[in-house]
């Protein structure tokens, strides 16, 4: 295996596992749309960094976390459902990203790769944030297992029973924002949503217990990313689009397997 192939393999494993885990958190909290909202906010932040000359990753992260922090208070203050607020912020950040891309004349190719994903942009140094993005939420779920489980199940009930639910909730959302941001290079802001959500939803179809779902979300995320990157390399397709297709295929297969398993169980 060449150094380049090893780098792509590690990128797929770490990026996919991290996205699978972040997706599990978002789907468990009934907030799958937050994934797309954070991804587009990160994209807008990354585009902004070209104008103001700040580091891409840091600016995208600030944009993503700021958006995440705005959702709760905006929903509470305006008595609107969080999904509605996310829709507004999603369209705003997408509009800002497109505006920035439109105004950027000379670096448009670089910026477009943040939208669609480009493996060639991934450097060895980028693997560290990908690894941290996979490891930090896993540490949180392990060290504060009973608390995170309660918050993922029902945040209000967790808070009412004396768990520091708000702090844990925002820590989990911040980790999701971080995962989304560091995966922009690989999958692209427009495509990231499917790598976040499809593996987690497929894992919920296939696995039964809590720990199995967490592990399978990460494994399927890694499989989707690796499969997509392989397709991208072999067929010379864009990485992001290939990952979307493979993750969608994984979801379709899990749905088929789950339906067949239920039908078999009912027929016995």
């Amino acid at each position: 295996m060449t150094a380049l192939e090893l780098k792509w393999l590690l990128t797929g494993l770490l990026g996919g596992a991290g996205c699978g885990l972040a997706g599990f958190i978002l789907v468990s909290m009934n907030l799958p749309f937050m994934g797309i909202c954070l991804a587009h906010a990160a994209l807008a932040g990354a585009v902004l960094s070209y104008f103001i000359g700040t580091p891409i990753l840091a600016t995208a992260l600030v944009a993503s976390l700021t958006t995440a922090a705005l959702i709760g208070p905006m929903a509470d203050k305006t008595r609107t459902h969080a999904n509605t607020v996310m829709s507004v912020l999603f369209s705003l950040t997408l509009g800002l990203a497109f505006l920035g891309i439109g105004l950027l004349q000379h670096q448009r190719t670089d910026v477009l790769s943040l939208m669609w994903g480009n493996l060639l942009l991934v450097r060895w140094v980028d693997l560290w944030p990908l690894g941290i993005a996979a490891l930090l939420p896993l540490l949180l779920l392990s060290l504060l297992g009973k608390e995170t489980k309660a918050v993922l199940f029902d945040r209000d009930i967790a808070r009412a029973s004396g768990i520091h639910a708000t702090a844990i909730y925002y820590a989990m959302i911040a980790f999701c924002g971080f995962t989304v941001t560091v995966n922009l290079n690989v999958v692209g802001g427009l495509m990231l949503y499917s790598l976040l959500i499809n593996p987690a939803v497929a894992a919920l179809q296939l696995a039964k217990g809590y720990k199995s779902v967490v592990a399978l979300s990460m494994a399927l995320g890694a499989l989707a990313a690796l499969g997509g990157l392989t397709v991208s390399l072999v067929l010379d397709w864009p990485a992001g689009a290939s990952i979307v297709l493979v993750s969608s295929l994984i979801y379709a297969l899990s749905l088929g397997f789950s339906t067949a398993r239920t039908a078999y169980a009912e027929s016995r």
């Binding site: 060290l143 009973k146 608390e147 029973s161 768990i163 217990g209 779902v213």
Partner: peptide, 25 residues
């Protein structure tokens, strides 16, 4: 609830706060 928890796990949630942050049941 989207989370695949058993009845026992939901009941045990009642002990999560009482036991204290970071401590296992």
């Amino acid at each position: 609830a989207a989370l695949p928890l058993s009845v026992r796990e939901v009941i045990e949630m009642g002990r999560a706060g009482v036991r204290g942050t970071g401590r296992r049941l």
